[in-house]
Design a protein around this nucleic acid. Structure first.
Length: 282
DNA sequence: AACCAGGTTATAA
DNA sequence: TTATAACCTGGT
């Protein structure tokens, strides 16, 4: 089916898809993006403030994709809040149109375990390999796409076999985490009534999940917008803007961002990241 | 050839 | 509590 959603602003799907929060969107030769989300395949084409979305299923994905794309949130208001920090004016201006997707916690957890000390190109390739090997096929416009496998399935894979997907030393983390989640020992789907800090503690129990990965999971799949993942780019840009390019420890930066940006820290992080990677040179 | 990339973990001061 | 090295993989 095809759906058309109009009047979205600010919104730039290219930034959202390639901005590093999701790894399963691919730009086609025709300028449209195709991605697998849950057990759906979506093809998204943006023209100005209009989205034309094609998908494999019936009509029930409209609500789903709107939530996924965070279309119900007023980003004008969020950008206004961010611009109250004068030093962020060029950042907000440059990164306007970015949105934080509402992704699946399990897929996000494994994806960001894979992301540790890794390149985006490798991350995407490994995730694609995992889906092809262990996911379910979906047909869309004559092509086959693959869902992200369940915790139960990855919990049953051997380390040597999983390493064929090029995840390297992260294989044991992925399998152990899958076992913990499949067993129900850590419930990553019950996050709505739990504070960010409490949920973070649970996530840190998973092997391969440290502070940065935990905050990515909180921000990209649990709508914990006070989470502030600090990777090397965020570290560099924070040191540049706020500490005269001096080296500052991660824990200190973490506290600094938490205090300064509070409830909108996650949005600030996203805008800063996009700005740091694509515009500013260290 | 050596080094690095969107970190985590184990080990030592 | 804070600092340092090792770690799969693929590219320069």
């Amino acid at each position: 089916m095809t759906m058309v959603i109009d009047g979205i602003h600010p919104f730039n799907f290219g930034m959202i898809a390639d901005g590093g929060q999701a790894f399963r969107w691919n730009l086609q030769a025709d300028g449209k993006y195709i991605g697998v989300v849950k057990n759906y395949v979506f093809e998204i084409c943006q023209k100005d403030n209009k989205l034309i979305i094609d998908s494999n299923g019936g009509n029930n994905e409209t609500e789903f994709i709107k939530e996924y794309l965070d279309l119900y949130r007023d980003y004008n208001k969020i950008e206004e809040e961010m611009m109250k920090f004068e030093e962020l004016l060029p950042v907000v201006n440059y990164s306007s149109g970015y949105r934080i997707l509402f992704q699946d916690p399990w897929e996000t957890t494994i994806s960001f375990i894979i992301s540790a000390n890794n390149h985006i190109r490798n991350i995407k390739k490994t995730i694609e390999n995992i889906c092809r090997a262990y996911g379910e096929p979906i047909e869309f416009k004559g092509e086959f796409y693959y869902t992200f496998p369940t915790p139960e399935i990855l919990a049953g894979v051997s380390e040597d076999e999983l390493k064929l997907t090029k995840c390297g030393y992260r294989a044991k983390y992925i399998i152990e985490t899958a076992k913990i989640i499949a067993s129900g020992h850590v419930d990553i789907y019950n996050f709505n009534n739990i504070s960010t800090e409490e949920m973070r503690k649970k996530l840190l129990m998973l092997p391969g999940v440290g502070r940065k990965v935990a905050d990515c999971i909180l921000l990209y799949s649990m709508r914990k917008f006070d989470a502030f993942p600090i990777d090397v780019w965020i570290q560099r840009i924070l040191e540049h803007i706020y500490f005269s390019d001096n080296r500052v420890s991660l824990t200190k930066l973490q506290k600094f961002a938490e205090d300064r940006f509070g409830e909108i820290a996650g949005f600030v992080q996203q805008y800063l990241f996009y700005y740091a990677r694509n515009c500013w040179q260290a």
